[in-house]
Design a protein around this nucleic acid. Structure first.
Length: 425
RNA sequence: GUGGCCGUAGCUCAGUUGGCUAGAGCGCCGGGUUGUGAUCCCGGAGGUCGGGGGUUCGAAACCCCUCGGUCACCCCA
């Protein structure tokens, strides 16, 4: 490895910088606001946990068994970087025993050691919520509606919602057994890889893209037919609730998600703007037995995670993007004394009034400062010039129209506010 | 983890079958007289052609290794 390569970000991870990060800031802020309106509080959990925390999430899943970043700290503790969002939150719930219902949201990076490509990174960010302590189907509906509305607000118009039910702990074994029997009876000719997958977890066969396997999958028994009366009723209530909110749903009996802990309701949002390999922009489901796995009381739970990178990618593919607020005012120093305090105090005063204000530094030429003003995207440029200052005024120019007026220094804030009001009208 | 494609200035790319101090557009910086941008004109900075090794009189171009990106599979956000 050469020296240059050492000072590059490692494989599969990347920096998010201006101007791209502007999108991120807005998206996260909108999610935070939406979560607040739904009654969810922010949960900040560590980026690493004892490795056992994540192993409880699914020893047999790729994310945990193959892709986890594990390390031993100087105290000999076996730790792992968070590969997914739910485990830490449920661990925190069990550790602190908040009174249910406990509804939290998060924004956090996840780490998975996998072969990187577009939309699939070794560090990726997820926004998510978790609702613990309520089995009512109303929470399922609320959680899905939260995410659905979030996408709609962002302008992510091409997502479809896939819905399935995994049944409960009592009925799932019967289904898995039936599935395995079916595959063994009709798929023996499909080869060792197929049989190995059936042996490990027959459900994982259901969502494969291998063309040759599709016939056997098509004719396989469906999970929803194996639901207990209770599970079936719950699933029906969820669908009814979504219908009442006019949220379109596609039932996807072969939708299988990557974690062992899912029970009952599972869902996934897919974007048509993205390639199949990374079209899942968000997904989640119920995990009614997970808290017990961590030594807590029996506690139902449901949540989702949605990937920031993929949201941005999908918006991009749609040619859409969220509006990122920029600079309101750019101040040009026409006095030629860059080190003076006149400009500095004016800029600071405007910022104190709530305006986003930027300026040039280092005594650049007036022309260069105006160029910088134009590039800043500011709607208005204020120039502190000798002539105007003699009259205790400043020059104010609308960069779009090219119109320039002289405004008394003490009246500048009022003038800018009046202008804003006029525009918002 | 398996297989394919790609890697030249900040960005998008051009560089004929290996041959002259490696180019363009955009972007960036400066100038076009005293204090005005986005247009126009002029000038400038910026690349050990991802990195290392090899073949050759000579390599950005050919070979090997390596790093990175990307696509499919696997899996997932």
């Amino acid at each position: 490895m050469s020296r240059d390569e050492k000072f590059r970000a490692p494989k599969g991870v990347h920096d998010v910088l201006p101007p791209d990060s502007g999108q991120w800031a807005v998206i996260v802020a909108r999610f935070a606001e939406r979560a607040r309106r739904y009654g969810y509080g922010l949960a900040i959990t560590p980026m690493f946990e004892h490795v056992e925390v994540f192993q409880r999430v699914g020893e047999h899943t790729d994310v945990v068994s193959k892709e986890m970043y594990e390390l031993t700290d100087k105290g000999g503790r076996r730790l792992a970087l968070r590969p997914e969002g739910t485990a830490s939150v449920v661990r925190a719930y069990v550790e602190h025993r908040p009174a249910p219902p406990w509804k939290v949201w998060y924004v956090a990076p996840n780490f998975r050691y996998e072969r990187a490509q577009k939309g699939r990174y070794r560090q990726h960010w997820q926004l998510g919520v978790e609702a613990l302590g309520v089995s009512d189907a109303a929470v399922d509906v609320e959680v899905i509606a939260l995410l659905h509305g979030f996408y709609r607000d962002l302008g992510l118009t091409d997502v479809r919602l896939l819905l399935n039910s995994m049944g409960d702990a009592q009925t799932r074994p019967a289904f898995v057994a039936a599935l395995r029997a079916h595959f063994l009876a009709h798929g023996r000719a499909l080869g060792d890889e197929f049989l190995a997958r059936v042996d490990a977890n027959p459900m994982r066969v259901l969502d494969t893209k291998v063309e040759a396997w599709q016939d056997v999958i098509e004719s396989a028994p469906q999970l929803t037919a194996y639901l207990s009366d209770v599970a079936a009723a719950h699933f029906e209530q969820v669908q009814e609730g979504l219908r009442a909110l006019a949220i379109d749903v596609e039932l996807a009996p072969r939708l299988v998600r990557g974690f062992d802990y899912y029970t009952s309701t599972t869902f996934e949002f897919q974007s048509a703007a993205l390639d199949a390999a990374q079209n899942a922009v968000g997904g989640g489901g119920r995990y009614d037995g997970l808290a017990e796995e961590f030594g807590g009381p029996p506690t139902p739970g449901i949540g989702f995670g949605t990937g920031l990178e993929r949201i941005v990618l999908a918006l991009d593919a749609l040619g859409a993007s969220v509006d990122v607020p920029g600079i309101d005012v750019f101040v040009v120093d026409g006095l030629g004394d860059g080190a003076g305090t006149t400009v500095g105090t004016l800029v600071e005063a405007l910022r104190a009034e709530g305006f986003a204000v930027d300026r040039a530094y280092g005594g650049r030429s007036v022309k260069a400062q105006w160029k910088a003003a134009d590039k800043s995207g500011a709607a208005v440029t204020v120039m502190v010039g000798r002539d105007e200052l003699a009259r205790d005024a400043v020059a104010v120019k609308d960069l779009a129209s090219g119109e320039q007026v002289e405004v008394p220094r003490t009246g500048l804030v009022a003038w800018l506010m009046a202008r804003n009001e006029e525009i918002s009208r």
